[in-house]
Nucleic acid binder design. Sequence first.
DNA 1: CGACGTGTAAC
DNA 2: CCTTTTACACGTCG
Length: 373
Amino acid sequence: MQRVVLHVDLDSFYASLEELRNPGVRGKAIVICVYSGRSADSGAVSTANYKARELGIKAGMPIVFAKRLAKDKDVVFLPNDIEYYRTVSERIMELLEDEADAIEQVSIDEAYLDVTKRSMDSWENAQKIAEEIKGRIKIREGLTCSVGIGPNKLIAKMASEYKKPDGLTVVRDSQVTDFLSNLPVSKIYGIGDKTTEALNSLGIRTARELANFDTVALERVFGRNKARLLQDKAKGIDESPVQQAEAQQISRIGTLKEDTDNLETIVEKLRELAADLSTRIEKEKVVFRTVSIIAIETDLKVQTKSETIQETDDEETLLGTARSLLERFLQENPGKKLRRVGIRVSHLAPKREKKMPEGLDRYFNRADADLTQ
DNA sequence: CGACGTGTAAC
DNA sequence: CCTTTTACACGTCG
C-alpha cells in the first residue's frame, strides 16, 4: 500500500516566536534557555536560531558553554516560555489538521501528515499541499517551516532535515535508495552516537553498507529485533502508520537547589512535581498503576525505582508512593547525593466516568477494568 | 509472563 | 559542572 507522508518541522520554533513578539531582538543571534535555578547560568540551551548556530551554539549545550562562545558578540539569551509556545503550536496543529487525512503530532514543533488520499497518490499534488501549508503558516503566524515528503514517516522526516530552514524536499519512492545510499549511518533517524560507534567498528559507515551487511553477523551484535530495525531504516522501510498514539507515561523532573541526600528536602521537590503531574493526569483523564521516581546523582547517572499499585489518579497516593520509593532509594544508596529528582506514572488507562455515588465503586469487582475503551 | 531496572535516542 | 520529556528495546528475576 503506497502512501504519501509529510513531515512538517517549524524552524527554530522557540527562537522565531521570541523574535516575532519582541522586535528589539529581530535579526540577532538568539538563544532560548532552560534555567535550572541552582546558579545564575546553570541550565541548558533549548533552541538556538541560525545566527547563534553559526557561533557553534546548539540545543542541549550548557548555558555557560554557550555564553563562552557568545563572548564579545551580540547574542540575546532568553528564558523559555513554554506556555506561550504551546498556544501558538496548538493553533498551527489545528491548521495542519485541515490539510491531512491523518495527523500525528510528535512534539511541540513537529508533525507527520498522511496525505495519501487527498494527493491522489501524486507527488506533485503532495508538493502543492506542502506549499499551501508553508504559505498558511507564514501568513497566519509569520513562521517558516521545513517540510519533507516521502513514502513513509522515516523518509519524510529525513527529507525535512535535508534542507533547512524554509525547505521543501520531496523523496519519491523511486528515489529512496539514491537518497539514502551515501548517507552516513549517523544521519539516519534513530541511529545515535552509541549505535554509530558500534556500526563503525564493524566497518559500516553508510546506509548502503548497512543495508547490504550480512544480517546474521549484525544480529550477533545487536540482537534480532534491533538488527532488523537497523537494516529496515537503512533501506528506507517504515510501515508505522501516521496516527496519534496514546501516552504511555507522563513524568516531571526537577533540579534540586543543591546536591543533597536529605529526605525532606527531596520530598519537598517531589511534592511540587507531583502536584504538577496531577494537573496533567487530570487534564488527560487517565488513571495510573505504576509510580516511579527518577534519581539523578551528582555524576548525572540516572537510577529509577518503581512500584505498581492499585489503579488510581489520586495525588496523595502518588506522592506517598513516590516518598516511600525515595526512602528505599536513600536506604539502599547511603551517602549518595541527588542533583535532580523526578516522578513518573505509567501503565495508564482512560479514566472511567463515574456512574455511581462516590466510594460505592470499591464494593464492586474491578476485573473488567481492562475492557474499558 | 509481569514487574522492575537500564540503555539509547530524540526533542 | 550539564534540561526536560517521552518512547522503546532488552535483560533479569520470580
